[in-house]
């Protein structure tokens, strides 16, 4: 077909859609800033307790010692516990709750959304009615009931957050499945003999992933806020420090020693902000309509 004397141009490198998305993401300054902050927080949560081994439950000094004085960088709380140690040790719990609640959300939401969007008909009717039922529940109240009934353990709190927030993921997943199942490459896979399971999770889901990934990233942030809300109301495991729990336990002293509430609040704020920046960056990077702008 081609003249062998003319050298063929070199084959370009395989560029997966994901590697292109990373290119896009890297050019987004605020998203990269968010990623750097988030990396710092995650590393702090993992290695911080080893570098700063003070037990967050130990009474180390007099209560309400302001930040910077008496040798405690962030001061002490109403029981004289080191606030710095609490923040560092609490980061782990806070992030784990945020992450695992988001995972619960994705597992439930994607499964229900995928089945509804793929099979249509009565399956969709039933699943979407269930989704709507969960959507109209007052979220905080419902999770409070779950935690109050089944105990304020870490897995139960995670589950309580996950069970009230999966509906958004389910709706997004369903919408994407409805759109993609009509595309020609899905029909092509069907013609190539792909069974339903393969069509759903190997063909459609990877193409439906971008908005789900974005939603999930933002879900980590809102799960952290949710946990803070539950902790603030005292619905938390008292044997575990989390940022929300620090705020909750110090809330009576907000007027005299505001820093005991402000500092963990700031930690939550910065973390959620970083996650949101990353989520927005992912949205831009994964949304093909914004590409090549």
């Amino acid at each position: 077909m081609s003249d062998p004397s003319i050298p063929l141009p070199p084959v370009e490198k395989a560029r997966s859609p994901l590697s292109e998305a990373w290119e896009m993401f890297r050019r987004n300054h605020s998203a990269m800033a968010g990623l750097v902050i988030l990396t710092f927080i995650v590393l702090g949560a993992i290695f911080g307790p080893m570098l700063y081994p003070t037990d967050p439950f130990d009474m180390v000094w007099a209560p309400f010692s302001p930040p910077g004085e008496e040798g405690y960088l962030l001061g002490t709380d109403y029981l004289g516990r080191d606030l710095m140690a609490q923040i560092i040790h609490g980061a782990r719990v806070t992030l784990i709750i945020g992450l695992s609640a988001a995972i619960v959300t994705i597992v439930i939401g994607v499964t229900i959304g995928a089945l509804a969007g793929f099979y249509r008909g009565w399956v969709e009717e039933v699943l979407m009615r269930i989704t709507e039922f969960f959507q109209v529940l007052p979220t905080l109240l419902f999770s409070m009931v779950i935690v109050a009934l089944f105990g304020a353990t870490l897995p139960m709190i995670t589950f309580a957050i996950g069970i009230v927030s999966w509906t958004a993921v389910a709706r997004i997943t369903r919408a994407e499945f409805l759109r993609i199942r009509e595309l020609e490459y899905v029909t092509a896979s069907r013609a190539a003999g792909a069974p339903s399971g393969k069509l759903m999770f190997k063909v459609i889901l990877p193409n439906a992933a971008p908005p789900i990934i974005v939603q999930s990233a933002l879900m980590v942030g809102s799960a952290i806020l949710f946990e803070a809300g539950l902790s603030f109301l005292g619905l938390t495991d008292p044997n575990i420090v989390s940022w929300g729990q620090i705020i909750g336990s110090n809330r009576q002293y907000i007027l005299e020693s505001g820093y005991t509430v402000t500092i963990p609040g700031l930690a939550i704020f910065v973390t959620v902000l970083a996650i949101s920046l990353v989520g927005d960056g992912l949205n831009d990077a994964l949304n093909p309509k914004l590409r090549q702008r």
Partner: peptide
């Protein structure tokens, strides 16, 4: 399956008939 082995389809739009991922 056997029938699909024997009958295959070439689709209209080459931009949407290949899985982008």
């Amino acid at each position: 399956k056997d029938m699909r082995r024997r009958v295959q389809v070439i689709f209209q739009d080459p931009y949407s008939s290949l899985n982008p991922r």
